[in-house]
């Protein structure tokens, strides 16, 4: 992802820019969950998936988030008791898929708008 950036400069900035980066990333996790859960998944599995894909997420924000999305009707859930450890599996509902499409379109529009900004270096 970061192939063109200068890693030396990016590292010390991370702490200083922390809150801004956090603000920018807020919401992308929702989008990622809705898209990933088109195939059913459970809490910890999803957490690993997100982290490996580069979405920096904490367990203590992800688990409540899944509940919230379920309460809003964007996810459905089902307990899977086939295995030794029963797990709650979530799946994106049709309404959640519509939301995911809308969010994706918006994200692309924002990315395009940012691409059109002057570089400012």
């Amino acid at each position: 992802m970061n192939d063109t950036g200068e890693p030396d400069a990016a590292e010390p900035d991370a702490a200083e820019h922390g809150t801004h980066l956090q603000e920018l990333r807020r919401g992308t996790v929702v989008l990622a969950c809705l898209r990933l859960l088109a195939d059913p998944g459970y809490g910890y599995g999803l957490l690993e998936q997100l982290q490996s894909l580069g979405f920096d997420t904490d367990a203590n924000t992800l688990y409540p988030l899944l509940r919230r999305l379920e309460k809003q009707g964007h996810l459905t859930s089902e307990w899977n008791t086939d295995e030794a450890r029963p797990r709650k599996f979530y799946r994106t509902s049709p309404e959640g898929l519509r939301l995911a499409r809308a969010l994706t379109d918006d994200f692309r529009a924002i990315a395009a708008a940012i691409g059109a900004l002057p570089e400012g270096d």
């Binding site: 809490g43 910890y44 690993e48 029963p86 797990r87 709650k88």
Partner: peptide, 20 residues
Amino acid sequence: KQRDDVAAELRAAIADQLDA
């Protein structure tokens, strides 16, 4: 209403993380 459900899910999640 949600207490048992949350407890079960949280337990499973903790166990998963512990295993890892």
